[in-house]
């Protein structure tokens, strides 16, 4: 039990809370819109902090329990702020602003110097734990967001397009690592089976570097696609890329390859016995 903080809680709660909320509204929320419910969340956190300060002794080895009331409120507030892309310094800053106000209020009480020192140390310790907790929670949430985003990017970046009847187009863009290669292969094979594709155009224009690992992934994809009865037309290898590949000693020996997507499409249509012709030309077939 800490009597000093009990007094603060009993006598000065409203005034400290108002002061803190006003400060936050002026200093922190200025940059970002003030979401509804934020004040209520802050108030819950405020009360949990005061209760912990008042009820717990000055624990030298205080660790914030994530499942305690205080831990839950703080976590919720941090989550909210991280999702709104606030900076972690704002989150921790608002905690420190509260600490400052509590320290000031403590000093204004008429206490013995021993009690003041004792209470300030406890205040310090608690807020150290809160700040560390908030920072860690913040980073965890951000990391989760980033993982989610890169997963959705992965989803987006491997479309298999139906270009024409029995003709598929797979435009590869970006870094081809093992994970992407596996996903690309899976999608492509499904699409080939579904559309009974006779030709698949593999466009590499957007692949930044063709090294042995990328080449190996491509070869495996191509081999698997062929087993399903499709022919592969590779397009979009740059002149430099071609030179580099041969120097590396990589041979795409029996794969049809065209420099541009346009030439590749022409080749693919030829295989399915179609062609692109002006509207008014005579039909020959």
């Amino acid at each position: 039990m800490n009597t000093a903080f009990q007094r603060l809680q009993r006598e000065h709660r409203a005034e400290i809370l108002t002061d803190w909320l006003q400060h936050l509204a002026a200093a922190v929320d200025r940059h970002s819109p003030h979401p509804p419910g934020l004040d209520a969340q802050r108030e819950s956190l405020f009360d949990a902090v005061l209760t912990t300060l008042a009820e717990r002794p000055n624990a030298h080895d205080f660790m914030l329990d994530p499942d305690s009331e205080l831990g839950r409120y703080l976590n919720r507030l941090v989550t909210e702020q991280a999702r709104q892309l606030a900076s972690p310094s704002e989150t921790v800053g608002s905690l420190l602003a509260l600490k400052q106000r509590l320290a000031r209020a403590l000093l204004a009480l008429d206490l013995s110097s021993d009690a003041v020192v004792e209470s300030l140390l406890w205040l310090d310790r608690l807020f150290d734990a809160l700040s560390l907790f908030a920072f860690k929670a913040f980073v965890d949430i951000r990391e989760r967001l980033i993982t989610e985003q890169s997963l959705s990017l992965l989803e987006l970046s491997t479309p298999v397009l139906k270009l024409w009847h029995q003709v598929l187009l797979l435009p590869l863009v970006g870094v081809i690592d093992t994970l992407r290669a596996r996903q690309v292969t899976e999608r492509l094979l499904e699409a080939i089976a579904e559309h009974e594709a006779r030709v698949t155009i593999l466009d590499l224009t957007g692949v930044p570097v063709l090294d042995t690992s990328v080449a190996q992934h491509l070869m495996k994809t191509i081999d698997a696609a062929r087993l399903l009865g499709t022919r592969i037309v590779m397009t979009g290898i740059s002149p430099e890329g071609a030179q580099t590949l041969t120097k590396l000693g990589i041979r795409f020996a029996d794969v049809v390859s065209r420099a541009t997507l346009r030439a590749g499409i022409a080749e693919a249509l030829l295989i399915v016995e179609r062609r692109i012709a002006p509207l008014n030309s005579e039909r020959q077939l």
Binding site: P208, D211, E240, G241, T244, K247
Partner: peptide, 17 residues
Amino acid sequence: GKADQTRIATAVSELAR
């Protein structure tokens, strides 16, 4: 030139991998 840029980038990619 561009060919050399591609050569060095590929070589670095290879060794780093």
